[in-house]
Amino acid sequence: MDNSNKREWPLWEVFIRSKAGLDHKHAGSLHAADAQMAIENARDVYTRRMEGVSIWVVESKNIHASDPGESASMYEPAMDKIYRHPTFYDLPDEVKYM
């Protein structure tokens, strides 16, 4: 049996919009020869029960991700900026609906 991966169909990431008005959300991945087949396969694999009204597929090799090892420097600077949240500000009780 052939053990090489060169004949393996490329891997695609699948994103599904569950209903009109919502974002596409990552659903999983699958193998397909091209984008059209990836969309058709995504329909069969990820939307058998009306889970979606729109499908995006992106070849996995084209996804670039942040490095979890750098999470500290990436996300921590936001931690001490609590003034970016509305709860930081004191308002007198008389002020309603702000």
Binding site: M1, N5, E8
Partner: peptide, 10 residues
């Protein structure tokens, strides 16, 4: 890889 897993099954 997917093929490796199939190989292991087969």
């Amino acid at each position: 890889s997917r093929d490796e897993m199939y190989q292991q099954l087969h």
